[in-house]
Design a binder for these strands. Structure first.
Lengths: 328, 328
DNA sequence: CTGAAAGCGCTAACAT
DNA sequence: ATGTTAGCGCTTTCAG
């Protein structure tokens, strides 16, 4: 393994000079710089990042910690973070927590122990609770997807209440009065979407069908089970809203197995716009989140914070879009 | 930041002893060990992995480099790798190459520069070409999903030829004679599936409709475009096979827009079993790969190789399953 | 503009 | 069983 000393010897300069060249620091004669670079090329030298990190206490790696890698939402976000980070010369490592606080803590520890530059996190409720008030994570951090009530942390979210209100209103205006709602449990997201849902009902003077409103783990299987229950209700819903695409997948399966026709027997809308939303028949009416922009914004906020830790914190709220298709 | 010296001082021992305790090395009196551990707890000490890595030249992190994070296949694999790695005390970082050799090289460089323990890779064709014959990556590596013609690298794959043959035979036995095939470009996977496809035609004495057989980038959009072209053929296919789920999604969209009925106007089968395969109507007949097992096997092979680099190499071929639904 | 030398936090010989 | 010491590969003062 060729090291900085080898380059220094070959170039007839000191390791300090080579280091300056590699880091593009000033005070090196262009001629020397050129010679060093040539030797670096020729000897195929690569800087040992571990040593560099240890000595200078810096890293060019950021982490993205998501709660569910199988959720298309996070895939798009991930791609955006990748793209943005690359532009700024950072690498991204992706960790999956499965909404499991244990795994989340393990990932967070990994970051600290490996001395990474910063983290973009969609936190579990447990982590969120830790972030209250005077908490200081000691590392640049941006929270996405979930609202964090702490003025010292950057936050990228959407207006869930408003979006849910719009989506629910659409369901109501389609003619539904008795409406079921399946919301993700364990995150602010689900609760906020529930709140918007309730507001829309109120706007239209509809009494909420509390027996048709459920919170559950945001997975397809749970969506299926919940909707199956709703459909067995003596007075079943005429419309259903799900708070993410995985729940929607489960819900659609349950509706299909129950031989109900969408939208005539039952209307259906959901948050998120996975690729299959327009594949199914009838195509699904959804609220689309600006996933790519969420990722990019988060990455840029994080990198700016890394470069200037004293920078003031901010919360960015991005706009969503109602996409009307045939399911409602 | 509390360091090993602080612990040593507080416990009245040397840093060497603390290091031995932390690494669970022998030759430490149980009593001393206990005392040190208590202080570690109390002072909330965390070992600096960067320093540890630099000094001992070891890491407990492995990387999984996939060609497309939006492909459900790799999501399942990723989860399996995570699970297995965790059991062995390793962390996993995930990198996405988008089938882009540049990004792939950047990821590979990251691993070397950060001195990670090893890598599980689904390589681009370009990387695969480098692995021929006498190549030595200098780092424990397991190749998944794609066949590598190098006896010095561990490899986990499925029998694509056989699986494609089975799937195509199913299409033929359903009554299709004129069959279209859309295969992923730029990987051994697509070519092997194409080969099995051709074999099945030959088995049944069917002349391949060469104008209906296409190679393309394995993305939904390209699947859509290709199938649109096939359907405009004066003698369009009566059945279509796609070599992954993204192509299938595109194909289905094209069929739907063309107002054709599945399976009566046109039958449809695909590789991969994404969650939406049973959501659409009619549900999709597929070859299911043992995704979870692929990931777990790869992780275990890698970790064994890390622990014993002289271990003999092996190729593991896993079985697939035909799942017959209503699309054919 | 360049070099010498110290040292980041830790582990691994080598002593004792 | 434990301590002493050297040094992993690099960056960063501080001199010159």
């Amino acid at each position: 393994m060729v090291k900085i000393k080898d380059i220094a010897d070959a170039a007839g300069v000191s390791t300090a000079t080579v280091s300056r060249v590699l880091s593009n620091k000033p005070h090196v004669r262009p001629e020397v710089k050129k010679r060093v670079m040539q030797i670096v090329q020729k000897m195929n030298y690569r800087r040992n990042r571990v040593a560099q990190n240890l000595r200078s206490n810096t890293s060019k790696i950021i982490a993205l910690i998501v709660s569910d890698i199988e959720n298309p939402f996070f895939q798009r976000v991930s791609r955006a973070v990748d793209d943005a980070a690359f532009e700024y010369g950072y690498s991204v490592i992706l960790c999956n927590t499965d909404e499991n606080p244990g795994k989340e803590e393990a990932s967070l520890n990994l970051l600290r122990d490996e001395n990474l530059a910063g983290v973009i996190l969609s936190p579990t409720q447990q982590a969120l609770d830790n972030f209250r008030e005077d908490f200081d994570f000691q590392m640049p951090m941006v929270i996405i997807d979930r609202y964090v009530n702490n003025l010292n942390i950057d936050n990228v979210i959407i207006d869930n209440v408003q979006a849910a209100r719009t989506l629910t209103a659409h369901l109501i205006e389609h003619g539904c009065q008795r409406i079921g709602g399946i919301f993700g449990m364990g995150s602010t997201t689900g609760r906020e979407r529930h709140e918007g849902f309730m507001q829309a009902l109120k706007d239209h003077n509809i009494t909420p069908a509390t027996d048709l409103i459920k919170f559950t783990s945001p997975k397809a299987e749970d969506g299926y089970n919940m909707v199956m229950k709703l459909l067995q209700n003596p007075d079943p819903p005429r419309g259903i809203l799900t708070s993410n695409s995985l729940l929607a997948a489960g819900a659609l399966l349950a509706i299909r197995e129950s031989k109900l026709a969408i939208p005539d027997d039952i209307a259906m809308v959901s948050f998120d716009n996975p690729t299959w939303a327009k594949l199914i028949d009838p195509a699904l009416t959804v609220i689309e989140q600006p996933t790519y922009e969420i990722g990019r914004t988060a990455a840029e906020l994080l990198i700016k914070r890394i470069q200037d830790p004293t920078r003031s914190n901010r919360q960015v709220v991005l706009k969503t879009k109602l996409i009307v298709r045939q399911s409602c």
